[in-house]
């Protein structure tokens, strides 16, 4: 019930701010939600998100970099590009985004840079609230790294 209300209100107030980021965020999250169930729709959302995010590209934002990183890492709305993903995620981490640690570790795992992956993973796991985002990392892979 709360969810319904929240979503309803969010639509009402959506036009009050300079809402480019919010729009991008919404699009991104919608994509994230749908990418397993409806990849095509998700891609549409991700593409929309990508367009919006690139508008915000010049404005430094940890959140923007994080979203872009993930998009490049997972090929959401863009062609998978681990290099760009790494770049963006590193940028996001630099600006203080803590969720990016796991994402970056994941990228390093995918690209086989296990040492770096380990570094970031350790860092993420050492901070309690960050460890949540590493949940979807394969334990086996984790073992290998360890």
């Amino acid at each position: 019930m709360k969810k319904v209300i929240f979503i309803f209100i969010s639509f009402v107030f959506v036009f009050a701010l300079d809402l480019t980021f919010t729009k991008a965020y919404r699009a991104f999250n919608k994509g994230v939600k749908l990418h397993k169930t409806n990849p095509q729709k998700a891609q549409q959302y991700f593409q929309k998100a990508y367009i919006l995010l690139t508008e915000l590209h010049e404005k430094p934002s940890s959140q923007v970099y994080f979203m872009l990183g993930r998009m490049y890492s997972n090929g959401w709305g863009v062609e998978r590009n681990y290099k760009k993903a790494e770049e963006y995620l590193k940028k996001a981490i630099k600006l203080g985004n803590e969720r990016a640690y796991c994402s970056l570790a994941k990228v390093y795992i995918k690209t086989g840079k296990y040492a770096k992956a380990k570094k970031y993973l350790d860092y993420a796991l050492s901070h309690e609230n960050l460890s949540n985002y590493c949940k979807d990392i394969n334990p086996n892979t984790l073992k290998e790294i360890k």
Partner: peptide, 12 residues
């Protein structure tokens, strides 16, 4: 238990 970030830019 899910966190999906904040829908506003920090600087904004």
């Amino acid at each position: 238990g899910e966190f999906n970030g904040y829908p506003i830019d920090a600087l904004d």
